[in-house]
Design a protein around this nucleic acid. Structure first.
Length: 259
DNA sequence: ATGGCAATGTTTCATTGA
């Protein structure tokens, strides 16, 4: 079983990319962020034609998340938002697919340290932590995949000295991500040997991709019970080379589970 | 010093992203 996450930066623009990618990478579950579509505009039909059911929670212009899963697999208990955290912004969707509870998250960007948006990001992380502390008890097989907008360590940043203390790499953000990991949610990417300078996002500007000036901010966290079943985790950086790409690359985790 | 690139809205630029 493969579970992937991808911030597509507008599913309207990126639908051809997603369909093409799924054809080449027929994962069992794909978590999408930044769909930027209201629910009435979600492309249900083309995704079904490609063999995927879709659950989604969208809004106009910003945010928006979705979970795609193969039509042949059982999928149930779709949940939107975090209970107890009132939020207009559509950033969380969860579903149980093939006995695995999959949570798709789009963590706030934070804009700049000391901004209102940064405080909202840290508050959001606290809510996520407290919610997942409960969810992991209910669902031992738990995957939390998405755009976390935080690079965990120096090796996840192309220029850690320049980024130190900046949004996406500040101490409080990294501590918030670490607190999730301390719940027993493990960074699947770091369970394996990886190429040096592996990143999942590159700025559209400054020829960042060509210089590999990126950050690793998209993560798949796996619960204690799933950790021994996780057999691989890769970033598909080739997708970033395509025509009119998202600024994020897909991240794919593989599990030794029968589909 | 501080823009650069991309997407959205109802647009002739502002806002947001990361």
């Amino acid at each position: 079983m493969r579970i992937a996450t991808w911030n597509v930066n507008s599913l309207k623009i990126r639908l051809p990319h997603v369909l093409d990618w799924l054809e080449r990478n027929p994962v069992e579950v794909l978590a999408l962020q930044e769909t930027k579509l209201t629910d009435d505009k979600f492309p249900v039909a083309p995704l079904e034609a490609a063999g995927y059911r879709a659950s989604f929670a969208g809004q106009k212009t910003y945010n928006g998340v979705a979970l795609l899963s193969r039509l042949a697999l059982p999928a149930s208990d779709v949940a939107i938002d975090m209970p107890g955290f009132a939020d207009e912004q559509k950033r969380v969707i969860a579903a149980t697919v093939n006995t695995v509870r999959v949570v798709c998250v789009y963590v706030p960007n934070g804009q700049a340290v000391d901004s209102d948006k940064y405080r909202y990001k840290l508050d959001w992380f606290v809510a996520l932590h407290d919610w997942l502390a409960v969810e992991r008890k209910i669902h031992p097989r738990l995957v939390v995949a998405g755009d976390y907008n935080v690079a965990p360590e120096d090796r996840d940043v192309h220029d850690p000295a320049a980024w130190e203390g900046q949004v996406l790499f500040s101490g409080p953000e990294r501590a918030a991500l670490k607190a999730l990991q301390d719940l027993g949610l493990h960074d699947a990417f770091r369970l394996f040997d990886q190429p040096p300078k592996s990143y999942s996002w590159w700025d559209y500007r400054m020829l960042a991709f060509r210089r590999n000036a990126g950050l690793r901010i998209d993560h798949v966290l796996v619960s204690d019970a799933l950790k021994p079943l996780c057999t691989a985790c890769v970033i598909d950086r080739d997708e970033r080379k395509r025509e009119q790409p998202s600024d994020h690359a897909p991240v794919v985790a593989t599990f030794d589970l029968v589909d």
